[in-house]
Structure formats: C-alpha cells, structure tokens
Nucleic acid binder design. Structure first.
Lengths: 137, 137
DNA sequence: GTTTAAGATATATATTTTATACACCTTTAA
DNA sequence: TTAAAGGTGTATAAAATATATATCTTAAAC
C-alpha cells in the first residue's frame, strides 16, 4: 500500500513553496535540482497542481510558480485525495471487477471504512503542519 | 493506493473457507476455479497463509486446506498487516530513501498517523464480519 | 522585433512492481 | 504402486509507474 510518486512529488513541491514568501516566484528548475528529480517530470506535477488551483504559474521570462493560498489553508487530506488517482484498494473497487463474491461479501464496506479514516486523518493536517522546519534554498 | 492481489486473494481464500464447516477440507483447485485464478498462484497464497498460521494444510490424497481458527477469531487488520508487504506509503518510508527533506519535514509523522488509523479500523472487524452471506459451492 | 528564460504538452521509452505460467518435487491415502 | 493432493523454484508476462526526448508557447528584456 503506497501513494504514487505523483502525490509524493506534489506534496514536496507545495512544501518547498510553503517555506518561501507568499509572493515569491520559484522556478521548476530550482525545485527539480533541489530534489534531484527530472525537470520534465516535475513540470507535469506542477502543471497538475495549477489545474487543481493550489499554485499560480507565471510563464515567460521572470516567471515561476507560487502558492495560491497560505500553507495553513491547504489541507493535506484534500491534496492527497486530489493528486492520488488510484484508490482501487482491492479488485472489487475497480471498474473491471470480476470477483464473483462482490454482491455478497462484506469486504468492500470494511475497506471503505478504513480508507475513510485514512483520509480523515490526513484532513486534520494542513500544509503548515508538515512544513520543513528550515528555509530551503 | 491499493493493496496487492496477494492480500486480496488471501482474504478471499479465508472467506471461502470461512463459509465451510470448521473441519471441512477444501482443495486449492476448487477455490481457484471458483474465483478463476491460476492454481499455481493461489498455491503460493495458500502456502503463505499456512506459514502465517491462519490455515491448516494437509498434503497427499484426500488432503486440502481448512481454517485453523474460527472466523470470529481472525482479525481482518491482522491479516492485512501480515499479507501486505508493501507499506512504503511514500519515498521517505523506503530503505533506499533519498529525499533530502526527510530529517526536517513533518510528512512522515502525518502519513504514519493516517496509516495507523487505517489498520486500526480494519482491526475492528473479524473474518466473520466480512463473510459472504451465502454458502459457496 | 529578436532573444532568452520561463512554463506547457505530446509521445516514446525505461523501470519497477506485480501477477502468472511452467515445470517438477513431495506427501500420503487408496 | 498409483493417483490426488499440496510445495517450490524459476521464468515470463503484464501492468503500473516514472523518466526522457523533443518541440511548442508565452512574455520580459534588450
């Protein structure tokens, strides 16, 4: 059971931006070098974060990215829910489910209950809570 | 975020056995046909369940497998914890972790908290609770 | 108005993880 | 001795995930 790198990287980008001044523009290159992640891959993560309305991107010379909200306004649970796309805990959660038990078994209910508690826990935290305790340069 | 088929199949085998009489031997072939899963693959799952002490296997002619404990004595959370081997939620949980944030960021604590609540929820259920409401033949 | 520095996007490739297949071994009751 | 059962190791396939390549678009600076 693990989250995708996509979610992992999304959180890291937001954390990176969260240590900066609210209106400070940061370049993707800087972040990719800091984490040692390919620039192209990170660009996609960043693009997705912009689509999700978490960050503001500015194209062209002098551009960069910045948080659109304050760290204490960004909920970790929401971020994970939005960036993680695969919540098919077991076969019975998939669209192509072929398990013959599905109509009569109680597993789905139980796994759903657990997953809800997982997300609910994450929702008790904001980006501010997980921010590194040092400025990242 | 999902469990491996290994865990999924393990639960299914236990559920299958749980609908039978306590001392009734069931063959792997029967289960693999019921679920449409390869016999060889299921054999490994079964073997693992035996190692984990959940089932009793009897080799040789007239053999088969059966639950070693009553369904109400088997905890779903324990089963998942024991059959699922990959709980590396994010890179910072892996032995080969290279994330530079690790020493200073609060993500691990938060993800751990959530995972604990996930497992704790599952631990509130027994095999009896998820058993199919019909006998499987 | 051309150059340069930034993000955007589509497609292809590689890597890793997960699942399955194949082949053969061991055990034990009939 | 045979047949029916589980056990085991290795190889292969499939799926999911991550990365690389290449090229495009935008906009400030000169």
């Amino acid at each position: 059971m693990k989250l995708t790198m996509y979610t992992d990287y999304s959180l890291r980008v937001l954390m990176y931006l969260g240590t900066r001044q609210p209106d400070e523009k940061v370049q993707i290159d800087e972040i990719s070098e800091y984490y040692n992640i390919s620039r192209n891959h990170l660009t996609k993560v960043v693009h997705n974060l912009a689509k999700l309305d978490y960050i503001h991107t500015v194209r062209g010379r002098g551009g960069g990215i910045m948080l659109k909200y304050k760290p204490e306004e960004l909920n970790v649970g929401q971020i994970v829910r939005n960036t993680e796309d695969n919540f098919y805990i077991a076969e019975c959660f998939r669209p192509d489910n072929e398990c013959v038990l599905t109509p009569i078994c109680g597993l789905q209910y139980v796994l759903n209950d657990a997953l809800n508690n997982y997300i609910n826990t994450l929702e008790q935290y904001t980006l501010q809570d997980i921010l590194p305790k040092a400025l990242m340069r």
